[in-house]
Design a protein around this nucleic acid. Structure first.
Lengths: 132, 132
DNA sequence: ATAAACCCTCTAGTCACTAGAGCTTCAAGT
DNA sequence: ACTTGAAGCTCTAGTGACTAGAGGGTTTAT
């Protein structure tokens, strides 16, 4: 059985994060020692790794909640998991497109500024401009 | 003089957002009517447009605070504005690269899943996998 | 004069944690 | 067995940039 610190190290998350996940019901409350300290088994390691990886991929907690409960029923259909992932992929694609537009605007701003005083600065000027 | 609602419409932000900006000292507190309602002039419209556009480009409030104060001194050097923008461009570039990696992993996950049950699902499987 | 639309302050909620205070328990070494 | 220091516990509050709602007051148009 692992202490919360050992679990944290194992799964690559911080200790308070684990307590937070328990508090919001994402991780089950584990058994405790007589002194009220948490002790975790192998299943908790698996679940926490699952959560961490999902978070790294940008899934929201509510999505992860559903993905976790799906993963606990290996004989069920994976249709829902696919739907969640596909929806997330769309969101990521959109975000990349938006950021690329912003990047280009920022780059243009910077390229056009040749130093000097604020009155001539294309950076400040671009920011002041109202959109069409 | 514009009411807060009129200013909001003019600059394309929500009314509570304007009050929030005032509260955190990003926008100056405007004069009030006898009945304590805010009234804004042309300068507030300009500043709020500046803020909105900067936010759309992803600048943080603290950066905007500095950019705003720079823009208020047209004869000063624009070096700092450039620095802030360049730093932000780097951050956006990095974010795009990260998101692109995530996108590819998501896409691979989805491409490899051919429906069926959770036990065979590549989506769930990929999420379970611990990183190298 | 009245009614609708707008405005006011204040508190609390969002998301996913993070930080800190003040205390208790555990594990290892002697 | 005892000590010590690391690690654990709970609880509260803070982050960023707003958003929502309650319970009122003001303005404006008719």
């Amino acid at each position: 059985m692992l202490s919360i610190g050992a679990l944290a190290k194992e799964a690559g998350v911080k200790v308070p994060t684990i307590r937070y996940y328990e508090q919001i019901g994402l991780l089950e409350a584990p058994p405790r020692t007589d002194g009220q300290q948490r002790r975790y088994g192998a299943e908790a390691v698996r679940q926490l790794n699952f959560i961490r990886h999902s978070r790294e991929l940008g899934f929201e907690i509510d999505d992860i909640r559903e993905l976790l409960s799906l993963s606990a029923q290996p004989s069920g259909p994976c249709e829902n998991a696919d739907k969640i992932a596909a929806r997330h992929l769309d969101a990521v694609d959109l975000r990349i497109r938006q950021l690329t537009l912003l990047r280009n605007e920022l780059k243009r701003m910077l390229d056009e500024c040749h130093g000097g005083c604020v009155a001539e600065c294309r950076v400040i000027d671009s920011l002041s401009a109202r959109p069409d």
